[in-house]
Design a protein around this nucleic acid. Structure first.
Lengths: 239, 239
DNA sequence: CGGCCTGTTGATGCGACTCAATTCAGGTGG
DNA sequence: CCACCTGAATTGAGTCGCATCAACAGGCCG
């Protein structure tokens, strides 16, 4: 698992270069960061860490997808965030609380770089650029969490789904207009947990949107046929 | 509104000294920060900033209480955070997005110090301690947001209320045990919006807890009579 | 006093979760 | 290559939590 030679260190540095968190960080610092990072692989379905366990560092995901989730005593789960290649996760756990606030689980076979807390903090103190990037990263995450809170407290499922579809379209094509299509990630059950609902309700809501002529659905593929109405639904307005 | 002399600058520095964000920051830096901070007062019910407006800086609340909230097209509102004296707010808006993600409103007459974005960022780059404190502050806020997400997605109103009551008790007395009492802040309507519900439901839920013999209620004062059961309700377990 | 705001209580309706049955797709092994 | 199993997705019927609407009591202030 640990660093076994120069080649591997070079490999790691190459990964760091494309990550937002390390953008603008001087070459020498990048080198040092690559050396303190530890490669860790996880198989599909493996738990990377449990909520409540002591936080020993944060992760950079270089391959695969993972979910960050909370689960209830009854077994229901809520997905706080889906993380893909090039993204970091559990950053916040390094700075305040000693324990992870959620559980991380691999959705497929994953490759990560793990940054141990103490050495990373030492490094951070010496690199204003890195600190600034980290602040920006946390800020964006907070914005994301705030949006989810708004959705859960003020919007119903159809509005959350509509917003999600619009975001996906924007992300995939850089714009939103009639006829654009995109794939849904992973399973619909996961998407349901991400939207704060369950599979059955998501299924019904999707088919309602379809029958309203707002979208078309085939397999895991969505085509937007009426962006204007979809936006209205996403805004939560009833009439 | 702006700095009008040495005395006022001294006053401001005194305020900064007791704020977590500035703990451990050298005296000289504190001096500079006090100079760039601008005093701003707001009357009860005044809006400090609107969601979506361009973020020009963040605030330190020195006197009074404010709420950070989202509101729906139908007029319903959700309170993300209640902020009291000595706390900062809108910090995250400074680092990433150019606009405030929520609306801030004064619940009573307030006194604040406003830190304009650009000069503060310049200062931050030169002060590792300040950067570190800011990271810790954002991390704690994220933890708070994550808990609220968990509550809204997985727990029902009685569980959220129970958790809130336990937190208040812990905050007020440093421990949780039978017979301890505390006051509810502001109005119950506000508390309801904070818990993601409405006044009527909060009222019913409180009286249900009372009839179960878990708490006693008189005016705005709560006495915990059965901590064990209250904790069980807060955990969300059905049986 | 009369307005206004907050809080309480009751009746009703809607959205979404639960439970259960069925279909379907993918993967496995005989 | 087909029978089998498993997990995902869909659909229907029933229930529950909570918001909505409405009426009313109490406290505060002009």
């Amino acid at each position: 698992m640990a660093d076994t030679g120069k080649e591997e260190a070079g490999q790691k540095k190459k990964i760091l270069r494309d990550v937002y968190l390390f953008s603008g960080v001087p070459e020498a610092d990048l080198e040092a960061l690559a050396h303190l990072a530890v490669s860790k692989a996880f198989a599909r379905q493996a738990t990377i860490f449990w909520e409540g366990r002591e936080a020993q560092g944060f992760y950079l995901l270089s391959r695969g997808y993972i979910k960050l989730m909370k689960s209830s005593p009854e077994g229901k789960e809520y997905i706080i965030r889906l993380v893909g290649p090039g993204e970091t996760f559990a950053e916040a756990a390094v700075f305040s609380d000693a324990s992870y606030p959620a559980t991380a689980m691999a959705l497929e076979d994953c490759q990560t770089l793990f940054f141990p807390k103490a050495p990373f903090l030492r490094h951070l103190a010496a690199s204003p650029t890195l600190a600034r990037n980290m602040l920006a990263t946390l800020s964006r995450l907070m914005l994301h969490l705030t949006r989810q809170l708004e959705d859960l407290s003020l919007k119903e499922v159809s509005a959350r789904l509509a917003r999600y579809l619009l975001e996906r379209c924007q992300e995939r094509h850089g714009r939103i207009e009639k006829g654009l299509a995109f794939e849904l990630p992973t399973t619909k059950t996961h998407l349901a947990a991400y939207l704060g609902t369950i599979g059955e309700t998501l299924s019904r809501t999707l088919s309602r949107l379809k029958s309203q002529g707002v979208i078309e659905v085939e397999k895991g593929r969505i085509t937007i046929t009426d962006p204007a109405v979809l936006k209205k639904i996403a805004s939560g307005k009833k009439r």
